[in-house]
């Protein structure tokens, strides 16, 4: 599917960044557009362009204002959009990841809260969270967290009124209509319903996390007694 270059807005975002927004009526098309544009920008390696941060409908393009300018980078973005508009380039085949999760108790301190808020049993919350696979939409904060749409709960999940000062690495959390895993220990306001014993972050690799936007991820419930058995194991693609 070629990119719809007409449905793009470019906004100044300070002296060293542009925000490119895809404004097509089709959300899926917007997501595809910004991620393909980000890939194109990264692979083209224009002078002075540091890189691109794509999320859902937008991509932040960061550049060195000493060696290039917002105007030049904007022209470069438009060149990329024209090329992507003509070419039906091959999209990378997604990889799939299986993530074991211990739900509830000390591993998922907000499981009961989420169940109560949704009017579901904790078993139903776990069942819905493990149903089907998720598309990783983008890498977010902190440290390349896999941001995913879902799960199919009846209601959006409110964030915690008092965010936690420290959420452990591996925390499996939900908020709004999104799901995430925390690669690193950090403060957080999302509801933590479980924890994976696998390690996501590997400082010896580039990138530091094994997944990319577009990859798929499934959660698999495991008993708390198995948690320690995974110690030191890294998340790797299953398929």
């Amino acid at each position: 599917m070629p990119v719809n270059a007409a449905a793009i807005e470019v906004h100044e975002s300070g002296d060293s960044a542009l925000r490119v927004v895809a404004v097509d009526a089709d959300r899926e098309a917007n997501w595809t557009t910004v991620h393909r544009l980000a890939e194109w920008l990264e692979s083209s390696g224009a002078d002075g362009v540091y890189g691109a941060v794509p999320t859902y409908d937008s991509v932040l393009v960061e550049f060195d204002a000493r060696s290039t300018s917002a105007r030049q980078v904007k022209a470069f973005v438009q060149l990329g959009l024209r090329q992507l508009g003509h070419a039906d380039t091959q999209v990378r085949a997604p990889r799939e990841f299986d993530v074991p999760v211990v739900y509830g108790g000390e591993y998922g301190p907000d499981l009961e809260r989420v169940a109560g808020q949704q009017g579901l049993s904790t078993e139903d919350v776990v069942r819905l969270h493990c149903a089907g696979s998720y598309v990783i939409r983008c890498l977010g904060a902190p440290a390349g967290s896999p941001m995913m749409d879902g799960p199919g709960f009846p209601l959006p999940v409110p964030r915690l009124k008092d965010p936690r000062l420290s959420v452990p690495a591996g925390a499996v959390a939900v908020a709004g209509r999104q799901a995430v895993i925390a690669p690193a220990t950090a403060p957080g306001g999302w509801c933590v319903i479980g924890q994976t014993p696998l390690t996501l972050l590997n400082l010896a690799n580039e990138p530091l996390v094994p997944y990319m936007p577009g990859d798929r991820l499934s959660f698999i419930p495991v008993p708390a007694a198995d948690f320690g058995g995974y110690a030191g194991r890294y998340l790797e693609p299953a398929r």
């Binding site: 980000a38 540091y50 890189g51 960061e62 890498l139 904060a141 902190p142 390349g144 530091l208 996390v209």
Partner: peptide, 11 residues
């Protein structure tokens, strides 16, 4: 770390 933001790491 100018290569960081694309992978979710701050600069």
């Amino acid at each position: 770390r100018f290569r960081g933001p694309r992978y979710g790491l701050p600069v």
